[in-house]
Design a binder for these strands. Structure first.
Lengths: 191, 191
DNA sequence: CATATTTCTTAAGATAGCTTAAGAAGAATA
DNA sequence: TATTCTTCTTAAGCTATCTTAAGAAATATG
């Protein structure tokens, strides 16, 4: 069950004893969100990190001209939060919303800070996890900063299986920074 | 001197005893680079992290069409490395080069891994430093993905004092993903 | 099912930013 | 100080992508 998944996940980074795992597990909460539920609404401080067990979420912002602009998608086994708001306790400009029925582990900042002290290995695990996130975002930047819309689109849909089926096209367009109209055109000319 | 600077820096994140500081200091190397020297050349594995004490560096890549494209600048008190290459020991596509006479602390992967075990607090420090880097890159993304060239330019020059004086314009253009010609035009129309 | 809502497509005209080419200005070196 | 190399500017024409507007298709809801 849940505890198993947690162990399997952390085993990739550190070796936790049963006691340590138990300690961690006690401070996590399993939360279920329905489609369109919010994990975080803009304006609030982001008090938790979420580990996605199943489902799909998006992180987005309402820009000054009133448009939604998606900055991130999260799928199974990704940690999602607004790190800036989480760490600095500043109100979030971003909202986080489930796009499908989604189940997560949620851990509050208080609990996580407690756990870092109680289970020092967790500090190592998150050091590594955060490094991996940094590498991932740097790879994304290479694609998004230097490639055309078409290249970005095909890069994305081939990197997450089924993605184009699970997410409306206009959201993909928003994430890729292109208009839905232009994305429609790209697809027409390439299929 | 050098040890002092190191202490002042880490004090922002954790409290190190003199012994711990000494241990860390022994595993660092102070290296000086002249203008145009390479800290890392494309094709090699990136074996060190560099902490910039003074100077200015750029991280760049030669794209498939033979152009240089700058992905990052590094100034005083920033850690610079190709994290992907550093962690996964893969050959780097990026090069890292000094743009001014630059002095750094260099720490090799072997030494850093040793230090994480010898000084667990360092693990915490780097967990936090890495989180801060992640926040910084996410902020950059907001500006670079969603704003016009003009906005990106003015955002950059006001965020690093003197930047426009220290770095040739064509390099700024490269970093901002615009042509030098167009940057020239932007500047003409706004001064 | 029928209607309402959400999502996707098409197409015409507009624009930001690119390409190419050339020369001007500035900085470095003999 | 002259010469060479590096960096910046100007301008004309071009292309990727956006805007606007409308209707078509798909999906959700009464």
């Amino acid at each position: 069950m849940m505890k198993h998944k947690l162990k399997a996940y952390f085993d990739k980074y550190v070796n936790l004893s049963d006691d340590e795992l138990e300690l961690i597990f006690e401070k996590l909460e399993v939360v279920q969100f329905n489609k369109k539920d919010f994990l975080l609404t803009a304006g609030a401080v982001c008090n938790s990190k979420y580990f996605i067990l199943e489902g799909l979420i998006r992180v987005y912002e309402i820009t000054s001209n009133g448009n939604e602009t998606i900055t991130q998608f999260g799928v199974e086994h990704w940690w999602i939060t607004n790190l800036d708001s989480f760490i600095n306790k500043t109100p979030s400009r971003l909202s986080i919303q489930a796009l499908e029925k989604t189940v997560v582990f949620a851990v509050t900042k208080t609990n996580l800070d407690y756990l870092y002290r109680a289970v020092p290995k967790l500090e190592r695990a998150f050091r590594i996890i955060t490094e991996n996130m940094l590498i991932a975002i740097q790879r994304k930047d290479e694609v998004y900063m230097k490639k055309t819309s078409k290249e970005r689109y095909f890069n994305l849909v081939k990197s997450i299986p089924n993605f184009a089926q699970r997410v409306p096209q206009y959201m993909i367009a928003s994430y890729l920074n292109i208009t839905p109209e232009y994305l429609s055109e790209i697809r027409k000319n390439n299929s």
